[in-house]
């Protein structure tokens, strides 16, 4: 089959997958007695109607794209880093820890924030290294190891909030005492968006793009992912590369945790990861593990998250509908990809 028609056929299948996902979500909406187009219109309104909403979308986009960037590295190495949620949480915990230690010192706030970010990266990397060590040296599948570590990180977060870091006299689900505003990332105008975190998000995905596309290191990571045995026989130290992939992914997850602390919540809260780890996995799957598409799909998912807030307010619909749409997109894209392969194979 000529290359051009193959490309067009591929595009057709991808558009078909998006349409099927929309159709699937619409059927669910109809089943609950809602009007699908009205719901989609509200989501779009909620995400793009003004600069405030667009900036809120970008606030979600930053940690999501950072997490997705990290996951592209582990995916390339053939690893399912399910423990990403815990790595975000540990990044946040380390950031809060460092900032709590320094907040009453004479160190300038900008340096405290910087140390907070470095600590966050360290926290995420250490937690990921633990999952990696379990996989590489302990033979524990990273899915099970990661899941276990996620539970531990949740318990650790709750313990810190209700224990050592509790508010004076009380434990509160709303988290630890917020940091002084001088330790918040500066925001643009009256929005919640920080240009620093936005820059970090862009930088993160660009770095991962170049690692995977333009470096010998990235090529070796992918070689390990494609066929670890062959890679080993070719002289690539597969264990080291797997560990490195975990640690790098943890650095990005830790960064996302640090952004959640310094730019969004300004404290540690029980659900500090906001589920971006699992959402990031969907993003990575949807872009077929290619960095070039990640920022766009992450933006789409962030828009769905923010836009869907309108559903309960305006239509009394549950905003988890956005999750249904996100999941449906991934499922149908994978499905259509399978169908496309079969069709091409037959031809």
């Amino acid at each position: 089959m000529p290359k051009t028609s193959s490309r067009w056929l591929g595009l057709l299948f991808q558009v078909g997958a998006v349409l099927l996902a929309l159709l699937f979500t619409s059927i669910i909406l109809l089943l609950v007695g809602a009007k699908p187009f009205q719901a989609y219109e509200r989501i779009i309104y909620g995400a793009f109607s003004d600069m405030g909403h667009i900036s809120d979308v970008l606030v979600v986009w930053v940690p999501l794209v950072l997490v997705s960037a990290g996951l592209l590295i582990t995916y390339s190495t053939g690893l399912w880093n399910i423990g990403i949620e815990g790595q975000i949480a540990l990044g946040a915990i380390f950031t809060v820890w460092a900032m709590r230690l320094l907040q009453d010192s004479s160190i300038p706030p900008v340096l405290i924030i910087l140390v907070g970010f470095l600590a966050g990266m360290l926290g995420g990397a250490l937690w990921a290294a633990l999952a990696g060590a379990l996989r590489v040296f302990g033979g524990v599948n990273e899915i099970f190891g990661g899941l276990g570590l996620n539970f531990v990180s949740t318990a650790l977060t709750i313990w810190l909030i209700f224990g050592p870091w509790k508010r004076p006299g009380v434990g509160s689900m709303s988290g630890t005492v917020p940091f002084d505003t001088s330790l918040w990332l500066p925001m643009v105008g009256g929005s919640r968006l920080s240009l620093w975190s936005l820059g970090l998000g862009i930088l993160g995905i660009v770095v991962v793009y170049f690692i995977l596309q333009g470096t010998y290191f990235g090529l070796r990571l992918k070689a390990v992912g494609k066929n670890p045995r062959a890679a080993f026989l070719m002289g690539i130290p597969t264990s080291s590369y797997m560990m490195l992939a975990f640690i790098l992914c943890g650095v990005f997850a830790g960064l996302a945790g640090a952004v959640q602390v310094t730019g969004v919540y300004h404290r540690l809260i029980p659900s500090i990861s906001s589920g971006y780890g699992f959402l990031g996995m969907l993003v990575a799957m949807l872009v077929n593990y290619q960095a070039i598409g990640a920022p766009f799909v992450a933006f789409l998912f962030a828009a769905l998250n923010i836009g869907s807030i309108q559903l309960p307010i305006d239509l009394k619909l549950d905003s988890t509908l956005s999750g249904v749409l996100q999941g449906a997109l991934v499922l149908f894209v994978l499905l259509m990809d399978g169908v496309r392969r079969r069709v091409l194979h037959k031809k």
């Binding site: 193959s6 991808q14 070039i292």
Partner: peptide, 13 residues
């Protein structure tokens, strides 16, 4: 080809 395809689809959406 694949990555360009994705770019187009994402931008389209």
């Amino acid at each position: 080809m694949q990555k360009r395809l994705w770019l187009i689809v994402s931008l389209l959406v």
